[in-house]
C-alpha cells in the first residue's frame, strides 16, 4: 500500500493538520508520501520532510497552485495520486473543496471526514452532524479520504528525513482565477471554528459579568459563547448561543462557566475534545460530561483562573 497525503499549508508554513493526517495515514499503514502543491513552497516542503513517518515529499511549485484553486489542484492530485492506494487530506475547507473533484476525476467514491481507521478500506465517520457514527467500507481501488484532524493525534513535527522530489507537472484548467481574500480580522476567533471556547450560563447573573469571560478569552485566544438560558435572560446576544438551536462547536477546549448543562446545551458542545465545568452546584448535569470539574463560586474562580492562565500562557 502507498498513501499520498496532500499537505495543508499557506505557502509559507505547514499546517499542523497535515501532521494529524499523516497520523491517520500511519493508521492505515504503508508508505506515506506527502504532496506539497503551491507557490514558493520550499519551506513547507522542508517542514513536511521532517515529519515523522514520511517517506517522500513531492513538490509541485507553480503559480497555478498558489491560491489552491480546486480546478487546477484536482487535476494535479488526480494525476499524481492515481499511482497510490489512498489519497488523504485534512477535512479543512481546502481539502473539502479539492478532494471530491479529485475523486470524480478518478471515478471513485470519497469517504469524508473520517474520525477513525478500521482497516485499509474501512473507516469511521460521523453523519447527521455527529448524532450517528457510520462505519463505511470503500470498494474502489483508490480510496480518496478526508480526515478530521482533531480525531488523530499528530505525528512528531521533527525527526523525519524524507527525500524531497520536485514535480514538473503544471495544470492550469483555465476555469477559475483568484480575485482576493480577506482574513478574519477579529481579535477573537469565530465561535464556530475557535480552538478554545469559554461560555457562560445563567450563573453569570448579568451581561456585564461576561466581561470576566472575555478577559479570560483574551488570555487564551478563545471565543466567548453562552448557553440559551443566558441568551433568554437577555445577558448576551443570540449569536453567542452554543447549543441545539445555536452554534454547534467542537473546540479542543470548552470551558463552561455557570452553565447547568441542559441537554439542549450539551447538544452543541459535547464533541469538544476537553470540557471544563465551573459551577457552584455540584449536582449540575454539566459535570457528567466534563473532563475537569471545579465546584466553586465562579465570581471567585474566574478572576483566579485568569491570573493563573496569565502565568502559564505568557
Amino acid at each position: 500500500m502507498s498513501i499520498l497525503v496532500i499537505a495543508e499549508h499557506d505557502n509559507s508554513s505547514l499546517k499542523q493538520a497535515t501532521l494529524n493526517v499523516v497520523a491517520a495515514a500511519k493508521a492505515i499503514g504503508g508508505d506515506i508520501d506527502v504532496l506539497v502543491a503551491g507557490e514558493n513552497v520550499g519551506a513547507v516542503a522542508e517542514a513536511a520532510a521532517k515529519a515523522e513517518g514520511v517517506n517522500k515529499v513531492l513538490v509541485a511549485d507553480n503559480a497555478a497552485y498558489g491560491h489552491f484553486l480546486a480546478e487546477n489542484l484536482s487535476e494535479l492530485v488526480a494525476e499524481v495520486g492515481k499511482g497510490y492506494s489512498h489519497i488523504l487530506t485534512s477535512a479543512g475547507t481546502t481539502g473539502k473543496d479539492i478532494m471530491p473533484r479529485v475523486a470524480a476525476l478518478l471515478d471513485v467514491a470519497q469517504v469524508s471526514d473520517i474520525i477513525r481507521v478500521e482497516s485499509e478500506d474501512t473507516f469511521v465517520r460521523p453523519i447527521y452532524a455527529g448524532n450517528a457514527i457510520a462505519t463505511v467500507k470503500a470498494s474502489d481501488s483508490i480510496k480518496v479520504v478526508t480526515v478530521r484532524p482533531t480525531a488523530f493525534d499528530p505525528v512528531a513535527a521533527e525527526g523525519g528525513s524524507a527525500s524531497i522530489e520536485q514535480l514538473d507537472i503544471v495544470k492550469d484548467a483555465g476555469l477559475s482565477s483568484f480575485v482576493g481574500e480577506e482574513k478574519a480580522q477579529s481579535d477573537r476567533p469565530d465561535l464556530a471554528s475557535a480552538g478554545i471556547v469559554i461560555s457562560g450560563g445563567r450563573g453569570m447573573q448579568n451581561g456585564d459579568n461576561f466581561k470576566m469571560l472575555e478577559q479570560v478569552a483574551d488570555v487564551l485566544g478563545a471565543a466567548v459563547g453562552a448557553s440559551r438560558a443566558a441568551v433568554d435572560a437577555g445577558f448576551v446576544p443570540n449569536d453567542m448561543q452554543v447549543g441545539q438551536t445555536g452554534k454547534i462547536v467542537a473546540p479542543q477546549l470548552y470551558v463552561a462557566v455557570g452553565i447547568s448543562g441542559a441537554i439542549q446545551h450539551l447538544a452543541g458542545m459535547s464533541d469538544s475534545k476537553v470540557i471544563v465545568a465551573i459551577n457552584k452546584d455540584e449536582e449540575a448535569p454539566i459535570f457528567q460530561v466534563a473532563d475537569y470539574g471545579l465546584v466553586a463560586d465562579l465570581f471567585e474562580a474566574i478572576p483566579e483562573f485568569e491570573q493563573e492562565l496569565d502565568k502559564v500562557c505568557s
Partner: peptide
C-alpha cells in the same frame, strides 16, 4: 461504491474528575 457496515449512536461522554 461505499457500503455502510453499521451505524451507531455516538458514545456518551464519561464524567471526568473533579479538581
Amino acid at each position: 461504491r461505499l457500503t455502510t457496515l453499521k451505524v451507531e449512536a455516538p458514545a456518551a461522554r464519561q464524567a471526568g474528575i473533579k479538581v
